[in-house]
Amino acid sequence: MWFTTRMQHNKEWVDTSQPATSAAYSRQVPPGEEERFVVVAGGTVDGFVNDSFLCFSAKNKNGDYHREMNSNLFLHWFLSQLLPALAEPSVLVFDNVPYHSQLTEESRYPTTATNKAELVKWLERHKIPFPPHATRPELLQLCKKNRPVPWYMIDNIIREWNHEVVRLPPAHSELNAIEQVWGCMKRYVHSSLQRFTQAGLQVRLEEAKLCTTKEVWAGAV
C-alpha cells in the first residue's frame, strides 16, 4: 500500500472562530510535489507478522505504487522478512499483481506479442501438431488452446516452506483482510497528518501501525 504527505480529505469542517492563519482554522496543503511511502507487510488474526513491516520512500510521483515494487524486491522481502517470521504452517493469501504472479518456466506460454517463429518453437517443444502453412493468428490460437495450467514461482517456494497459498479472483481485493487494515491505517493518517513532510508522514505511519490492533485484524479476517 502507499501513503502520501498530501493525504488530506476533500472537504473539512472549518472553525471560523479561529483566525485564518491558525492551524485550528483549516489544514492548508502546501504546493509542490508530495512525498510517498510504499508499505509492505503480512498479517494474521493476531496482527502484523513480527518483522514483516517494510516501509520505503517511493520515487514515482504518479500514484501507481505498483511500479515501485518488482518481483525481485518482493521476493527478497518475502524470503528474508515474511517466511522466516511465520512460526507455524499458514495459508498465505495473494491477489494477482504481477510481482505475485511470475509463472514457472514450464507454465509460460506465448502471448500476442510473440512472433511467428517463437510460436512455432513453442508448439514444437510441446509436441503439438500444427498445419505447415498456418498463419500467425492460427498458431497463436493453437497455443492458447493448449496453454498449460498456470503455476507460479512463489507458490513453489511457499510449499517448500510447508505453507499453503490461496489466490484471490481478479478484481476482488475486498476478500483480502489486509486491504481493510490498510484502510484503517489510511483513515488514521488522513485525520491526523498535520505536517505535510516526509518526517511527519513517517511518524503518523508508526502511530497508524499501532492503531491496527489485534482486534482490528481479527475483525478484518
Rank of each mutant, 00 (worst) to 15 (best):
F48Y: 15
V49T: 14
S52F: 02
S52Q: 06
F53N: 04
C55A: 12
K59P: 09
N60D: 14
N62H: 07
D64A: 12
Y65Q: 04
Y65A: 13
R67K: 09
M69A: 01
N70V: 08
N70S: 05
N70W: 07
S71R: 09
L73H: 06
F74R: 01
F74M: 02
F74T: 08
F74K: 01
L75D: 02
L75Y: 03
H76I: 06
W77C: 06
F78S: 00
F78R: 02
L79G: 07
S80L: 01
Q81A: 11
L82M: 08
L83E: 11
L83A: 05
L83K: 09
P84Q: 01
P84Y: 00
P89N: 08
S90Q: 10
S90D: 03
V91F: 05
V91K: 12
V97K: 11
H100C: 07
L103P: 15
T104E: 05
E105R: 12
S107C: 06
Y109R: 03
Y109W: 13
K116S: 05
A117F: 13
E118R: 10
L119A: 02
V120M: 11
V120T: 14
H126G: 08
K127M: 07
K127D: 01
I128W: 12
P129K: 12
F130T: 05
P131Q: 13
P132I: 14
R136Q: 09
P137H: 07
P137T: 11
E138Q: 15
E138H: 07
L142M: 06
N146E: 07
R147Q: 12
R147M: 06
P148T: 13
V149P: 00
P150I: 09
Y152T: 05
D155K: 06
D155M: 06
N156H: 13
E160L: 14
E160A: 13
W161Q: 14
W161T: 10
H163C: 10
H163K: 04
